[in-house]
Design a binder for these strands. Structure first.
Lengths: 343, 343
DNA sequence: CGCAAAATTCAAAGCGCTTTGAGTTCGCTA
DNA sequence: TAGCGAACTCAAAGCGCTTTGAATTTTGCG
């Protein structure tokens, strides 16, 4: 049924060499010949055998990732979403995955084994921490990689895709300040993760620019679950001087936070303002909240797809991708933000 | 650095044929020779080149899965957990994954393409529904597959691994009845999923055996998120005659349910009893709830690992695995269950 | 028109493994 | 002791692609 190169070449009256070259974009093929080849491919439905390509080229056509199985990460909804983007793009290029679950303490070994196995052409890395030691390690492994996020304190000379978390939360905080809010709280992700650190920093910067300080009692760090959002918000509300506005690192956290607010009988957008970061989880749309949420938005799935594109592009040596990308999150104003209540 | 078959054979003074056979367990190799070969493998660290094996055997050494990107599934925490188990096992055998995200309406096409691509030796299927059409389709595709869960109404002649949901919830409900509960509620997963249907059925059976009926107002179906657990429980509590006990299809749902109960000032295990199904999510341990949860337990990760084992075993034609497995969930009693309160 | 250079195309040699078909060797039977 | 099957082992032929080095055809110019 399926034709192979040999048959295709025969059909065209060409050598395998020429057909192969035509398909792989080599310059020494006559333009007209190439068209004929492409046409024949269309007609026959020829698809190169990946196993043979792997053997002949030594490339694996697959990308590896160490799937963290630390508590609270593997089962994180954000992980699935990102993975979907990555996989979606990979499958388009007929790339495989090697998913390697690993406990944090075994990660280094896992990475080494993966890189040495010859089973992957590139690695992907996420959940960046400050001074993340994995970056230096990967550099030493001489295998291409792309990082989702950025470390802090490390030199910046590695390929990454990150969103500008600092600016996102700076923008969000500034908006709140402009609306008259002075006491702003933060429900953040885990304290050791780089994005959390940056978001807090962005918020601090906006406050500082307006002569405001951040009350550490109004900052909570936790896994980004609904449950934690709820608890954090409750804690804030019990404060003798509760915040009039809150920044949330995820719509998942916001879900819990909103519940705590409803329960306390507070009107969102009036009594208290809320801005959340929106990873565009299909399950949790900010516009569907009882009071539509003002958000800083950046699609996690799109990030996954983009990283796959860069990884694959790099392996195939096609296209020319920037080594470092910093996406700016959009600040989308909906109904959950309003002027600070008058005392 | 890495040795290949040829070098290994040379080293041993044997032919490649013999070495290959020794390694692949063929019977016509002298036992002593085989030992020598195995010893040499250990010394040299020889690892067969997968790309070459793929080409020579025509097998892909990889398993495919269609990753559902329906709202509420891809980002489901349960998905990540299951995947971790699957991947963990796959990586041990040096198997790849082909993850194919697909919207439900494209699933059939995706499966066909995947099966025809030659990139996978076997498929894996989950999120079973009643009368699931995918089963007939997969049978027609002539590619091995294993289903996680079971359909309902389909003939049973396909390979699956499922837990005995009916019995699990039968057991749980019976325990509650024995404790004197008469009004029992159910917070279930999505109505169209087979496991939800079976759990309800198990519960109904236990009730019926004791002459009790199920009040449909005490049944909620939803995605298994914290949020939905909370809402469902709230709804129950507003009922003119609230339940004295509740069955939950997931600890994630229970999380929300517990919050609603706390908020209502009800004492769990005293005013109201709660049993949840526990998928053993590392993030959410039933023993860590404020009141430790009585659960029906079955590890999702273990199920993933087992399915990978069976799939891989089938492909390699190693070992002999049952075609159909029904795991029994353990009913573990903790503090969230107690006698029904006296009126 | 003739020839070197440029543009194309090709035959053949791998890539590292599995597997077929053909030896060898050895122990026994006749 | 010849003959035969059982037990092992081997050489060689692929698997379907890429790539090297050479051959062939065109093109450009003097």
């Amino acid at each position: 049924m399926a034709v192979n190169l040999k048959q295709l070449a025969e059909l065209l009256g060409l050598s395998q060499t020429t057909v192969s070259r035509a398909l792989n974009g080599y310059p020494e093929v006559n333009a007209e010949t190439r068209q004929r080849v492409l046409q024949a491919v269309r007609e026959t439905g020829y698809r190169p055998n990946r196993a043979a390509q792997r053997l002949a080229t030594g490339r694996a056509f697959s990308i590896g990732m160490v799937m963290p199985i630390a508590p609270g990460i593997d089962s994180d909804v954000h992980f699935g979403e990102f993975l979907a983007g990555l996989a979606e793009e990979a499958v388009k290029h007929d790339f495989h995955f090697v998913l390697n679950p690993s406990a944090p303490e075994d990660e280094e070994v896992t990475f080494r084994r993966l890189a040495a196995s010859g089973n992957v052409d590139a690695l992907f890395l996420a959940y960046m921490r400050a001074n993340d030691p994995r970056i230096a390690m990967l550099k030493s492994l001489s295998i291409p990689f792309v990082v989702h996020g950025r470390s802090i304190g490390e030199s910046r000379d590695y390929p990454f895709l990150d969103i500008d978390n600092t600016t996102a939360f700076y923008d969000a905080a500034r908006l709140l300040i402009q609306l008259g809010h002075q006491r702003i709280a933060l429900i953040n992700g885990p304290e050791y993760l780089a994005f959390s650190i940056r978001r807090k920093k962005g918020m601090l910067r906006a406050l500082a620019e307006h002569g405001l300080a951040l009350d550490e009692a109004l900052v909570q760090h936790s896994l980004m679950t609904d449950e934690h959002g709820y608890r954090s918000m409750q804690r804030f509300l019990q404060h003798e001087q509760p915040p009039t506005a809150v920044l949330c690192s995820s719509t998942v956290l916001a879900l819990g936070a909103v519940r705590a607010l409803n329960q306390a009988g507070l009107k969102i957008g009036e009594d208290i303002s809320l801005i959340a970061h929106d990873d565009v989880l299909p399950m949790l749309k900010p516009e569907n909240f009882s009071v539509p949420l003002t958000t800083t938005r950046s699609s996690l799935r799109a990030a996954g797809a983009r990283i796959a594109t860069r990884l694959i592009g790099g392996i195939l040596k096609r296209g020319d991708y920037p080594d470092q990308e910093l996406w700016r999150a959009e600040l989308i104003v909906r109904a959950s933000t309003g002027p600070a209540p008058q005392k």
